[in-house]
Design a protein around this nucleic acid. Structure first.
Lengths: 361, 361
DNA sequence: ATGAAAGCGCTAACAG
DNA sequence: CTGTTAGCGCTTTCAT
């Protein structure tokens, strides 16, 4: 009832007639305390409705009991599915999950420094974040464990990372289309909208971050094409900022070509949805007139009956934290790259190309 | 380069030949410090690559600089959209965002206690969480500010809350269908899968939590029906756990009725997607044979061309934290219920009922 | 098994 | 403007 003031370990100690040290031990299941006293203390704590002050504990122990997750574009479905994998593991751990969303350059610098360097967290999970060469310094300066999810960078080899096999995925997607009989296959991918400001004031070329996944999926696409002896057509390649709106415009442009593709492989489901919208707008029947395959297998993909490449988003989140937790508790194994396999999920946006099906209208 | 050990304010003090107090003041932009000394100190700090220890600071100041967000079902799109609104505001504040996901009864108790009572956070945002009568005690015991998003409960009147007008939304959805000419309108809603364990060991009736939104949307539905002088048909009402799978089964059952509805209003987009799947499976044309309206206007709704009730998910998240931040900085205004309006978004899953359109096949 | 005491790193009230 | 001194609440040697 009366709970204006929150109690401390000292209050308990006084009531129990012991010292704070003993109370601390009792509360932490230390074996160095008489069973009787422990019970007495526990009872008092309960009666007092005592709750430990985590902050003090953290300072004393030298651990924050928090792990930081750094993500761009919180809204993207693929990100939140990964996150929820992370959450699932952390719920059963003593660690708090603190989230940092980074959507632009300024935030980015601040974000890294703040989270990593200010000893607010015991470890960090960096998900789908583009890493700049100049970032590497920060990252290495930090002594706290870091694991990356969905990010490859040459300079990052001394960190753990969880990636899915984008090249193989892109290959599978394209192969599926090829097997269906398509020869004219478009690719729609993304670059990121985050840019680095040129160090000097000059307004020279802005460097887009290296979002490798789209590029790797393209590599897989190319590989399948080469294998099938089909020359790649530059008109069938397009990339722009990530988003369904952009994807839609790209698709429309591509489909208006005098010799348009009969199938499009989009580097993400979100983009594939944009392509579907384009098809609708142009009154093209999917899959009869146009086959579409996406990448990610986000929840909405099921509703949209989209054929796509599933990457285990949720699992990747789980594996990431698990690895991080291991590191935090001191595993010294060499840093490791875990490759998560992909799988093609065939639904209803793919079919043999038009000619072979469009018998009657 | 050499950064095995992290520096403290004391290191700086010694080098600068001042006391820690002065360094602290310098670092915190206190006006009570000579400009010259400040510069000197700042430079040293920089050279040393000093970063303050937040935990110590927190203990000293008595604030955690963190706000907690408690959510169920992290995966639900409506939740993550709300969350991203929260994130957008918090990015520009000194507060960390710590997330607690609660998906079952055990977690729930622990979760509330842990977050609220262990002084790890300065305030809490509780989103879409069912609140039990017995929880109210905890909540009121806590002195930290709390704001609720998407939760009404009689006992909660002394807290701030952000809710959308579910009744009005349900009304709008149904009215739209009515205006289109529908008379046989089904409702598909949800109850939650979280149950309370009966206090005594008896295995008597489990009490579902009070997830009010679905119910309120139903009230709106009823209101529109009454207004149109249409008696409510119990066969046209169905509720089950939330999820597209469950919604699909409910819809199938309802559509197999000898006199099936010509339209269905689902209490959430996710459920509406389930209804769409049911229609597909039964080879019913949407909207010709069946009109469907959802609730939420989740991202995927756009792709699905779903007519739905938009509630400003993102905005609700933003407003919630803003309110919370105000409270934390000590606003003493009376607690407030903010009602966020809803809006109907007409897309392509609704049309006049069959008879009026199905001319030729 | 328990008490005593030091200390985690920082802030803040009080002097001067 | 700066030094001194406590102190935030808890953990953890070191004694006893």
């Amino acid at each position: 009832m009366s709970n204006k003031k929150t109690h401390t370990i000292l209050d308990i100690a006084q009531i129990a007639g012991v010292t704070p040290g003993t109370v601390s031990r009792a509360l932490n299941d230390s074996p160095l305390v008489n069973e009787r006293t422990r019970e007495r203390i526990l009872k008092i704590a309960k009666d007092l409705n005592y709750t430990p002050n985590m902050v003090a504990r953290r300072l004393s122990v030298g651990k924050t009991f928090a792990i930081g997750v750094i993500v761009p574009f919180f809204t993207r479905p693929s990100i939140s599915e990964r996150l929820s994998g992370v959450v699932s593991i952390l719920s059963n751990s003593p660690y708090d999950l603190v989230i940092h969303n980074i959507e632009n350059t300024k935030q980015r610098t601040i974000g890294f420094q703040d989270m990593l360097l200010k000893s607010r967290i015991d470890g960090a999970l960096i998900i789908s974040m583009p890493i700049l060469d100049e970032d590497i310094a920060y990252l290495q300066e930090t002594n706290i464990p870091i694991v990356f999810i969905d990010r490859k960078h040459p300079g990052l080899s001394d960190f753990d990372s969880i990636i899915s096999d984008d090249i193989a995925g892109g290959y599978k997607a394209t192969k599926h289309l090829l097997d269906l009989g398509h020869r004219k296959i478009g690719f729609i991918g993304d670059i990121t909208e985050i840019y680095t400001k040129p160090a000097n004031g000059t307004d020279k070329e802005l460097n887009p971050f290296q979002f490798t996944s789209s590029k790797d999926r393209y590599k897989g696409y190319l590989k399948a094409l080469v294998e099938a002896d089909i020359p790649s057509n530059p008109n069938y390649f397009s990339e722009d900022n990530h988003g369904h709106i952009e994807a839609k415009s790209m698709a429309i442009k591509m489909l208006r070509l005098s010799d348009p593709p009969t199938a499009i492989f989009a580097a993400s489901d979100t983009q594939a949805f944009g392509v579907i919208q384009a098809a609708r707008e142009m009154e093209l029947n999917v899959p009869a007139d146009l086959s579409i395959v996406g990448f990610d297998d986000v929840q909405a993909a099921e509703f949209m009956e989209l054929t796509t490449i599933r990457q285990m988003l949720y699992r990747s989140g789980q594996q990431g934290v698990k690895k991080l937790l291991e590191r935090i508790s001191g595993s010294n194994s060499r840093s490791h790259q875990i490759n998560i396999p992909t799988e093609i999920i065939i639904r209803k946006t793919t079919a043999p190309p038009n000619g072979q099906v469009k018998i009657a209208a």
